[in-house]
Design a protein around this nucleic acid. Sequence first.
DNA 1: TTACATATTAATGTCTGACATAATTACGAT
DNA 2: ATCGTAATTATGTCAGACATTAATATGTAA
Lengths: 239, 239
Amino acid sequence: MNRKSKPIFKPYKKSSAHKYVSEMLKDYIISGVYSPGDQLPTEIELSQALGISRAATREGLRELESLGLITTVQGYKGGRFVKKINSDIILNGLDLLIKTQRASFDELMEARKAIEGITSKMAALNRSPENLEVMAKVIDLRVDSKEEFYRKTFELHEIVALASQNRVLYYIVQAIRKLIFQTYANLTLEENDVELVMKNHYDIYNSIKNRDPEAAEKAMINDIEAYRKLYLEVIKNKQ
Amino acid sequence: MNRKSKPIFKPYKKSSAHKYVSEMLKDYIISGVYSPGDQLPTEIELSQALGISRAATREGLRELESLGLITTVQGYKGGRFVKKINSDIILNGLDLLIKTQRASFDELMEARKAIEGITSKMAALNRSPENLEVMAKVIDLRVDSKEEFYRKTFELHEIVALASQNRVLYYIVQAIRKLIFQTYANLTLEENDVELVMKNHYDIYNSIKNRDPEAAEKAMINDIEAYRKLYLEVIKNKQ
DNA sequence: TTACATATTAATGTCTGACATAATTACGAT
DNA sequence: ATCGTAATTATGTCAGACATTAATATGTAA
């Protein structure tokens, strides 16, 4: 939405001012009045339109920022901008949950295996030809750089989850995977390990291509289990 | 933690003031310096200890509130209190995700079936005798009130997820179930429906008791699928 | 003595207006 | 043409005042 074609901002009466600001803007973002990339009115415009002080308006905007709905940019041409929503919006909460509950690495990996196994199974049933094409592009892991290896690995898992055609599961899988990679350091793999991962990825691709859900689930679980073991070895060697 | 035995609050230097407040307190909450139920210092105490204005301190506290880590109580004996963390902390994000992505009821139910099916399967392998005891208490659904019926239904699903012994899956299941019940109205069930749900619950209980993972998964999926169909019928009749 | 109405108290909630900081853009001197 | 500097415009922070809220303490009438 253009900054100039503003929606209607009704002055608030009851309830708390900061909450009024965040709730109203949240509704506008959810309903699509503001789209990702759009700039919100400035603090002063908002506060004047609503008849709320700038301080209370800022508190409301902070809430939205904390929820992951907007970003803040200071300076000339700065302002508040609506974010593109993705799995990051549950990542924060999941992270807090796991940290405060002291959930273990194994618990997280078990959850990942279970859910990503399901998406792999569903992908075998629901995958489109386009999904397969993208997968084919990222299963050759004989690459030069470590980064390239990780990028391709990440993309395969992403496209499998996407191919399940279930966005709820897709976002949950993405959040869990991101959480694992941001919490636990990446591995440095040996030559043998690369071979193994590549074989596993090929198995996943092949069973999804052949529309074999059971094989697809099994292959995915194998792949993640292999990663788990590799990671635990790294940990052991570090001690 | 007692309000009087305060942790150390180092005055901030760089980065933003409000962020310093929220990050610092978040770390204290995660690391257990503050436990659920504990009261944080008042805004004035905090701002004075950190050398930050009250306005900026409040913004930081709002962020924590928005994340779901603290609650705010106004008035005498009011203040900021650390919340007990549960699945609610991802519920918000999941809700936003589904609303903005316009994910369908069916997509959500598919996800629920898949994940809750898994927890049921895992419960059959990992359940404790205590888990079984609690389940036994809630599978008789021949009750007077609608509320009692819903309470028992909710508790059975809760204890099954808990019996999987995987807290990550448990919280995800809880969040999805809460989301479904808060987004889509509850059903009004006929006599026949109650019989059906009760049979399904009994199947779930029995297969978990017998440590039969495949049967447990199937029974859970049946139960949720039945709920989905009942709900869709209600929708159809309303039109 | 008890019960109800009222005052006190201590926290958050809100407002105002000023100044600080950041980052893009415009401009001017070399 | 380029580099450095000033202007612009958004958010960031501050200080101090007053409003609101809700538990508690107090006082008064039945």
